[in-house]
Amino acid sequence: MWIYEKKLQYPAKVGRANVQMAKYLITQYGGPDGELAASMRYLTQRYHMPTPQAKGILTDIGTEELAHLEIIATLVYKLMDRASLEEIKAAGLGAYYADHDRALYFVNGEGVPWTAAYIQSKGDPVADLHEDMAAEEKARATYEWLIDLSDDPDLNDTLKFLREREIVHFQRFGEALQIVQEYLDTKKYF
């Protein structure tokens, strides 16, 4: 179970509304390397991890990704806030508007809806932890391209925080991988 804290893990400030940036950023909401995919991937894979440490790391990081999902939602919402229809159309979000108004939906920057096919749950803990480490690197890279696309220092401050968290997550999954590999090795010999 979870305990909800009615605050964000990190402040989600934007310097100004920017519909074009909202369109780019929404991929971290519902895109292939976004926070929903990360969270669902880890929270599902944890059940077949062979050691309590690996289960715990997947639970903790899967939970933190939900906190990041909330930060991204807040950022996209603020970037879209009070956008005029003209701005929405100019940013190429007219089709999005037809389906969702200004509401949040799980899509990538091209409007492709989220799918469970973005994630795997292989049942092999070594294979799955490698996917998780790759996912962290892909999320880190996505935050870097988003920072490149943005000229808003407030938005970039939050994106840099989220990017750094992916580096920490990679380290933790790497440690989990060592623990799991050593555990599987000892099982082979006894």
Partner: peptide
Amino acid sequence: ARAYVPFQ
């Protein structure tokens, strides 16, 4: 044929 990340 194995990946290693040093423990912190």
